[in-house]
Write a protein that binds this DNA or RNA. Structure first.
Lengths: 161, 161
DNA sequence: GTAAATTCGTTTCATTTGTAACCATCGAAA
DNA sequence: TTTCGATGGTTACAAATGAAACGAATTTAC
């Protein structure tokens, strides 16, 4: 009851003009990614002193075997300079080796060494366990909605490829 | 039919030991956040040369009126040095002013100036439009699952507060 | 009261990052 | 074949970032 409030176009406080940061999709997504990234990074940082680009490179090579730096970057959505630096460090640790392609000498094939593989075999289950653990914090229905939501966002945001 | 393959514990290629990066939750979340952040950032970067911390600070103050730097950081999940630097730049541009609290002189209250408010009033609708646009790229059911998924993740990952 | 611990916010410094320039190589076109 | 543009990868430089130290003000413990 009562007369509806007159909207004042000059009023910054007009609620329909405002943006609620807490419910704003880019912000929510960023905060979640930041939180999950930080949490999960403990797994590989504390144990092996890996940075995220290094972890991703290791994960890519562990998953796919031999890859080029370009392929690593594409698979893991990393800038090529990040890949380059991560590869350099993993090579320095002797966790991977490079081999120049003989027919196209611009390309180099990256492969995990035995040591690198051993690390991967230790880290991959930890990663899976982390994910399982995270999903275990929610109900099955919630877990399902998470996967569906991610699928929908990927379809809307990452159409290319 | 056929005898199940014997698992070879030394084989890196044993699929159940591998981690598929493309389906790994932290990775998916990070890639999505990165994509959406980049896409949306065009809105405020091209037009106003704002960085993400600056945009968030503006958004916080626009939404809430006067706030302390600490409150800005808490609301927008930013490190206090990021807030400090964003505030310094927004002040330099005369988009906000500081006012020392008289009873506790450690605290300063931040408020948008008229110019700052004007920018906010231009940017907030653009942000909402971006979000609406993104959701319009999917079906209503997909949009719903996105929100449900985010809710579930937040409940699992950000219990504090 | 005073000393110690805490809080708000800034600054310093080392690290990480991205852009752009770069080098080497390759493929296509002339 | 020479040249020109594209490609794989690295490097140089500047900007953004975070950890830690800091200064000033406040609160707590004694």
């Amino acid at each position: 009851m009562g007369i509806p409030a007159m909207a004042n176009p000059d009023d910054l406080a007009a609620d329909d003009q405002k943006l609620t940061l807490e419910t704003f999709l880019p912000y929510r997504l960023n905060r979640l990614a930041d939180a999950i990234s930080r949490e999960f990074a403990k797994t590989y940082r504390e144990r092996y002193g890996l940075t995220r680009p290094q972890w991703r490179t290791l994960a890519g090579l562990g998953q796919n075997g031999t890859m080029t730096a370009k392929a690593v970057g594409e698979q893991s959505a990393m800038h090529k300079t990040k890949v380059s630096r991560a590869v350099a460090e993993l090579e320095r640790r002797k966790w991977l080796t490079r081999r120049r392609n003989t027919t196209d000498r611009r390309i180099e094939h990256l492969t995990l060494t035995r040591v690198g593989e051993a690390v991967y075999r230790e880290l991959a289950p930890l990663a899976k366990a982390y994910e399982a653990d995270l999903l275990a914090r929610m109900s099955p229905a919630q877990g399902k909605s998470v996967l569906q939501g991610l699928n929908a966002l990927e379809a809307a945001l990452l159409p290319r490829r």
